[in-house]
Design a protein around this nucleic acid. Structure first.
Lengths: 207, 207
DNA sequence: ATAAAACATGAATCAGTATTCATGTTTTAT
DNA sequence: ATAAAACATGAATACTGATTCATGTTTTAT
């Protein structure tokens, strides 16, 4: 509702405190969950007084939102970096998945926060996925035009890829801590290249 | 912690009240979210007094859990019914997705509750996905053995399929209300049969 | 018909915690 | 060096809402 966020801190000390509190909030929210996490928990972790948090953030909801926006930027930065030197779109998808999975294993808070966000702040959560989607579709469309992919529905493909990335991310960060990344990437690669239907020519093209 | 749940109601009236409150809880939780939903909201919707809820459920957490378990059963029932008369595994997957998507459009509370569950009661949420996974893998493995699918990593395939189902479910129930189901099913079918890589023989086999 | 069990009520309790604020300290600008 | 602005404190406030419980009603069993 309130569109005017707190102004940026004016001094170096201020910027540091804000960053300190934001980092503490990320940890606490991902470890305890939004509801269980109290302002006292966050400021204790950050080593400040409770009131200090309100110098930089309007409310518990707003600080959560800032945490999510920050993570969103990190996720997108990480994935675009991954695909920079891919040879073609299939390769880009595969590298993208691998980098992504390694990222979420390093930063398991990512998925916790995104999941919380779906519940705590649905608008921000939608915007996050919409942004990912909006950047994804043109890549897939262009790749199909260049014949690096078969022709197909780029939008639906984007959602399917995002679905695979998302669940695999949850899986490795929450369940197996990264030990299955290689298997996952191998099978994903095979899905993109051949689907999962029986293949006609058994062992000819590795392409 | 407390493993002893409330005993089953002894009378018809009791069973009806319990069902009434459970249905109200599903609606209220999915509309308002777990945190915002109060016991008063639930009992108001159910048309009973607040205390009545505590005759049948130990706590707000427990009633949420019961809602989730109930939905889990419905989801599994619906999807197994869908694939009963599929001709092969690829066909089963495609029918499964379509039925599934139509189900979540009819019952949009499904995804809201599952998402909430990831945050509110992580144990139950994990058990839900684990159960889906445990039932899925043997089907895929058996199908590969019968050569209805190519050989591959059945476990990773199961997670990828679940990821696609999940995101598409969220997508149609939350975003577009079912109008894109046909497009989605078509593209999904194509992914399973051919992948998304360029195809060697342009227009030969519809299989 | 009657006692016992089961079910139902809703106002009062009570614990937790987000937010404020009066007071102090540090930094910046002149 | 000094005033003003920015930053920091943490105890007190204020509110919410889950849970309880004393009391009443309905159903079941005999």
């Amino acid at each position: 509702m309130n569109m005017i966020a707190k102004p940026q801190p004016k001094t170096k000390r201020g910027r540091e405190r804000r960053a300190q509190i934001l980092a503490a909030a990320e940890d606490v929210f991902s470890e305890m969950g939004f509801t269980a996490a109290s302002i006292a928990d966050i400021t204790r972790r950050a080593g400040t007084a409770q009131g200090t948090l309100y110098l930089y953030f309007d409310s518990k909801d707003e600080i959560f939102r800032e945490v999510m926006l920050d993570l969103g930027r990190q996720i997108r930065r990480e994935s675009s970096r991954a695909i920079e030197d891919a040879t073609d779109r299939i390769d880009a998808e595969i590298r993208g998945l691998e980098t992504y999975l390694r990222f979420v294993v390093r930063r398991p808070s990512v998925y916790r926060i995104v999941q919380q966000c779906a519940v705590v702040d649905r608008t921000t959560w939608r915007e996050f996925y919409q942004t990912v989607f909006d950047r994804y579709v043109p890549h897939l469309q262009a790749a199909a035009d260049r014949e690096e992919l078969s022709q197909g529905d780029a939008e639906v493909r984007a959602w399917m890829m995002i679905g695979i990335f998302t669940l695999m991310g949850e899986r490795v960060s929450d369940w197996d801590n990264g030990k299955d990344i290689d298997r996952i990437v191998t099978e994903f690669s095979s899905l993109l290249r051949y689907g999962i239907a029986p293949r006609d020519e058994p062992t000819s093209n590795t392409r």
